[in-house]
Design a binder for these strands. Structure first.
Lengths: 347, 347
DNA sequence: CTGTTAGCGCTTTCAC
DNA sequence: GTGAAAGCGCTAACAG
């Protein structure tokens, strides 16, 4: 029985393994592994390497990244936790992120929280189970901080888009406070004196910051703010409608200009105003935030603050890569830019 | 030496393994495995199971899906191959897909081809290396067919959004031909007689179908079509501009209405028309395709054909799940819907 | 009911 | 320059 060789066919699913290639060439799997590894292929005799490469090609060998990952502990995957893929605000972030990490052979894996804390927790857990190499959180609410930080102890985590107060986690931060102030300044420069805000959910840190920047700077230059008694529970169109209606019905003085905390809420407000027969900007000026695709071509073209989504995604990707390389990246600051269009006009 | 026990601390990265839990409770790993597997936990004595669950909780055990995947050959991951994440057309598809598969514990992994064949090939290869359980292709061009079909021999593949002619692969199909015809009919009903198309890339099957539907049905009802001598190389704004300029400069009769093969190209055309001092719809009617978010609020609100992106994503997700369950799903047909707004008017 | 053994496909010592 | 063997964390087949 000197020929114990068992005829091991390629596995049921048809995948060709290192074994198959090794058998084909008549060498050991470790030799094949070395021959196919760019960093080690010098340690293999040129002639055998050629045979191996050839056989691998011929058989259609494809490395099994899962098996490799089990060994190395890396999956070349970055988990992206978003709130809502239906919001055109997040797509460019994912786009930028994907572009930034693809050079390193990494791919994003995406999940949606729907702004629900339990889902957030589950998703984080799931991603850790999958052993993603890093996590980019673009959906964080204040209540998610602890759990995200504890994930950060296991794997690199970058916080993007929605900032977190007092955290050790590295962040890509947008200066929302400054953005809010820019809106106040713009309205003031157009001659407005009585203004109001439609505020986004207070537990998404961007919104309180926008509110503060707007209110404080506005006060300092003499703007009078009519307080809206409601706040949005989510930063979406329907909530913009609700707040706008609340403002109109609460019986207080009507402002001449409104700062909606994001473009979607501005769209909601616009719909309500239109329905009530109020013209924008003729009767009321309106400013949004984010500069979503196409808002510059709305009727009227929306004055807004440009939020650099693509750059945020790119920066987050780079930071994750740095973290993975053992570096400790500094927080990135990305500045807002006021984009004056036609929905806010001189009074 | 009856106590060979080595003090195996949890691994360097702090991850707790079955081993750790087993050691803690004083049982074998396979017992722990069973105790933690919902389908097998009856085979474990209640008391030990309790201890195990307790210890797992206490130690912070988290299943290692990679290791499990190596064993089972499944990764609970669906690869999504998109052309361009920057296009708001794809996002809802991903959104729908993610929603459809999440119930099965699967997550999408996304990559962009930028409409480049080599990148398409690389990405497919990469996804197969990662052993995704299935692939949804939303970026296919005619030249990608063979390679996609060969991937389909290894793993379930669903073709969505961009159809493929004569393929065995299951598809989510949108009736582009019908959509094109609907546009012709609409323009005809508005009294237009001379029309033109800004055609999308011919190797993305949707566009020739839209063109045929439009031309053939248009001819049958008496529309005269001015041929544009150029075709887009990609379905994007700048190409819409280029074609619109080409039409204006080619010296042929000017149509009274234009059918742009998608909304982005319509936006490009709109910009050119505006720059040349031509009003839409006063001087020229314009119809797009897709009904991207917000095009209903443009100035003018764009008349377009609604492409059911979200539903396409959902259907693709369901089909992948069916395929994974060993079923052979039928192709899904999703119908277009003309959305009349203000960019096309009665002549 | 629980322990043993083998092995998923690959990389990585350690020998020779 | 190459082979042998161990092992990544888990599941499954087989004992007992």
């Amino acid at each position: 029985m000197d020929s114990l060789e068992v005829d091991k066919r390629p596995q049921k699913d048809g995948a060709v393994t290192l074994q198959d290639v090794a058998r084909e060439v008549g060498v050991h799997t470790s030799t094949v592994s070395r021959a196919l590894d760019p960093t080690k292929q010098e340690r293999v005799k040129e002639s055998t390497r050629m045979q191996i490469v050839d056989a691998a090609e011929r058989l259609g060998y494809r490395p099994h990244m899962i098996a490799r990952g089990l060994q190395s502990g890396r999956t070349a995957t970055i988990g992206v936790v978003a709130a809502d893929l239906g919001n055109t605000f997040v797509t460019p972030i994912i786009h930028g992120l994907a572009g930034a990490i693809e050079g390193a052979g990494m791919l994003p894996m995406i999940a949606e929280t729907q702004d629900d804390h339990d889902r957030f927790a589950n998703i984080l857990d799931h991603m850790l189970s999958r052993r993603v190499d890093g996590i980019v959180a673009v959906a964080t609410r204040a209540g998610d901080k602890e759990i995200l930080e504890s994930a950060g102890r296991l794997v690199p985590v970058v916080v993007a888009a929605r900032p977190l107060d007092d955290t050790v986690l590295p962040q890509v931060i947008h200066d929302d406070r400054r953005g809010g102030a820019m809106v106040a300044e713009h309205l003031h420069s157009l001659g407005h004196q009585v203004v109001a805000q439609l505020q986004g959910p207070p537990d998404v840190a961007n919104f309180p910051r926008r509110a503060e920047g707007f209110s404080e700077f506005g006060r300092s230059i003499g703007l009078v703010e009519v307080l809206v008694l409601e706040q949005a529970t989510r930063p979406i169109i329907s909530e913009g409608q609700r707040l706008m209606e609340a403002l109109l019905e609460q019986g207080s003085e009507l402002p001449t200009a409104i700062f909606a905390h994001n473009d979607l809420m501005a769209l909601g407000a616009l719909a309500v105003l239109r329905a009530k027969g109020l013209g924008v900007p003729d009767d009321l000026s309106l400013v949004g935030y984010n500069d979503l695709p196409m808002v510059g071509q709305l009727s009227p073209p929306l004055t807004t603050v440009r939020y650099p989504s693509l750059e945020v995604g790119r920066a987050a990707g780079k930071m994750i890569l740095q973290l993975l390389a053992g570096e400790r990246p500094e927080d990135q600051w990305l500045e807002p830019l006021l984009v004056p269009r036609w929905s806010a006009r001189r009074i």
